[in-house]
C-alpha cells in the first residue's frame, strides 16, 4: 500500500465509525420531536446494550476447550459478590481483575 492509500484506508475507518455514531443524531434532530417509537427504544435499549457488551467482552472465551472459561466465570462471580457487598465500582472492578490475573497467570 502506498502512503496515500494508507491515509484513505484510515480515513474510511474513521468515516465508517463516525457514520454509526452521528447517524441517529442526524436523522432525529433536536428541533423536531423524536418519534414515540424511537423514544421508547432510547429507554429500552441501555439495559439490553449492557448485557450485549458483557457477552461481547467474553466472545473469545471457549467453554469447550482450554480452561473452559473458568477463570472468567470465577472472576465475574467475585465482581458480582464484591459489588453486592460494598457497591463500590472501583473495588469490584479491581478485585475481579486481580483475581483474574492471578488465575490466568498462576492457576490455569
Amino acid at each position: 500500500m502506498t502512503l496515500s492509500q494508507q491515509i484513505v484506508t484510515i480515513a474510511l475507518c474513521a468515516a465508517g465509525t463516525m457514520l454509526t455514531r452521528f447517524l441517529p443524531f442526524l436523522i432525529f434532530s433536536s428541533k423536531k420531536p423524536t418519534p414515540k417509537y424511537v423514544q421508547y427504544l432510547g429507554k429500552a435499549l441501555p439495559a439490553a446494550i449492557f448485557g450485549m457488551l458483557v457477552v461481547y467482552c467474553l466472545k473469545n472465551v471457549n467453554v469447550f476447550a482450554g480452561s473452559h472459561g473458568l477463570p472468567e466465570l470465577i472472576s465475574i462471580v467475585i465482581v458480582i459478590a464484591l459489588h453486592l457487598w460494598k457497591r463500590q465500582m472501583l473495588l469490584s472492578v479491581a478485585g475481579g481483575t486481580v483475581c483474574y490475573m492471578l488465575l490466568v497467570q498462576f492457576v490455569f
Partner: peptide
C-alpha cells in the same frame, strides 16, 4: 484486559438492581 469486562459487569449489575423487571436486560444477554 479483564478490567473492561469487570467494568461492564458492574454497569450491567447496577442497571439490573435499578429495575423491577428485567425484560430488556435478559433480552440483551
Amino acid at each position: 484486559d479483564f478490567v473492561m469486562t469487570a467494568m461492564f459487569v458492574v454497569i450491567f449489575l447496577d442497571q439490573w438492581l435499578k429495575e423491577r423487571r428485567h425484560y430488556t436486560a435478559l433480552i440483551g444477554v
